[in-house]
Nucleic acid binder design. Structure first.
Lengths: 148, 148
DNA sequence: GATTGATAGTTACAAATGCAACCAATATCA
DNA sequence: TGATATTGGTTGCATTTGTAACTATCAATC
């Protein structure tokens, strides 16, 4: 039987992933927080709307695996700050279609640019092969993990 | 100039990392929560003590990049539930040496075993080369990211 | 068309977190 | 010696989060 002390936390994937996630998010997080007063869920909502067009809150929940309460609050906050508007859907008034305002779009454009720049420096350290493997593995982990 | 809508969130590394981290932690988290009523920081503290021997709170903070308030509260909680004991250090009574109790060690052993099993199934999907690259990239990201 | 059951989204309350101020022990140095 | 700074660790308070219960709209069944 292997000694328990052989187990190295530095090789434990969930631990590595958590620390890498945290480390890699810090700077960007600081940026959108300082510049737009957004928090993570808000940026993600903005991102989804900017990237994939108008969506309902539910769709964002599903696509991003975010709990509906978090999305609900993020949407409320974004609406108050005029980054997006809601429009009840004809035919089913339970749904609300969310759309970025001009302000929201501008923020999205800026944030995407920053994200891109940020990602470039982060990934610049790796070869193309490494990047591919990295992305593919992460995606696999995401897809096979149980959703919340 | 590239269109902003070209940017794919699914390739944005911090996003991938965050989602993979979350997905990969869920099951294990559920385990130590259900079995020992621990939360993440508590498990990490237990882990560090079990793996690296007795440490002070400060040392755990440094090694794991966890804020001292979080560690402080985790230690308090673990002490209350008899997973560890503190002992003021001779010579400098600001430091307290933390040691796992028998109960703490038992929990550590069990959790390590579970973590190992968990990691095996998670990484089982990848080739040895992939695992190496994955670990090496993550470590690089961790080490180059600004610490909190 | 009333009853039951989903479904989209909100809210209320408890637990977790981050931040800053804090305490106590030690170090520094006039 | 005594004033000041530093360090390990804790506490208080405001913000964020998770969970569960709630409203409102629609669907299905009788």
């Amino acid at each position: 039987m292997t000694e328990k002390t052989d187990f190295d936390l530095q090789h434990f994937m969930p631990y590595l992933l958590n620390r890498a996630a945290e480390a890699s998010s810090l700077d960007f997080q600081r940026y959108y927080k300082a510049r737009y007063g957004m928090q993570r869920t808000e940026w993600r909502v903005v991102f989804h709307l900017g990237r994939y067009g108008d969506l309902t809150a539910k769709e964002i929940c599903t696509r991003a695996s975010i709990h509906k309460t978090k999305v609900s609050r993020a949407v409320a906050a974004l609406e108050k700050r005029r980054f997006l508007t809601r429009q009840p859907l004809e035919g089913d008034r339970r749904h609300e279609l969310l759309s970025l305002t001009r302000t929201g779009k501008a923020a999205f454009d800026d944030l995407v640019e920053e994200a891109q720049r940020f990602d470039d420096t982060l990934m610049g350290a790796f070869s193309v092969t490494e990047r591919d493997i990295l992305r593919r593995c992460l995606r696999h982990i995401i897809d096979t993990g149980r959703g919340s």
